[in-house]
Amino acid sequence: MTREEIRAAVLDAIVAVVPGTRQSDIKDETPIRDQLDMDSMDFINFVVELDERLAVAVPESDYGRLATVNGCIEYLARTLAGGPPPVGSGPAGS
């Protein structure tokens, strides 16, 4: 799966959680939750959406890696490539 495909899936997941968001408005480097005023319920729904789209069940301990769109792409690309379990996971939340 290419990074572009992963990016598309991430954006789709965000829109599914925060209806009415335009993908073109989502900035890749700004924390997603701050951009879109997502609360913890929105975020866990986002994780569920990613799981459904990409079959990647992000463990809670890795939630911190999903802070930005770029962070999501980085993390998911490595995981999908069957790479080593990501290390240095930050604490949950932002």
Binding site: M41, V58, P59, S61
Partner: peptide, 17 residues
């Protein structure tokens, strides 16, 4: 909670709330 969430897929995880 951490234990529960580690053992369950995202759709079944719980929030502290």
């Amino acid at each position: 909670l951490a234990q529960w969430n580690a053992a369950h897929p995202p759709a079944e995880r719980l929030l502290p709330a």
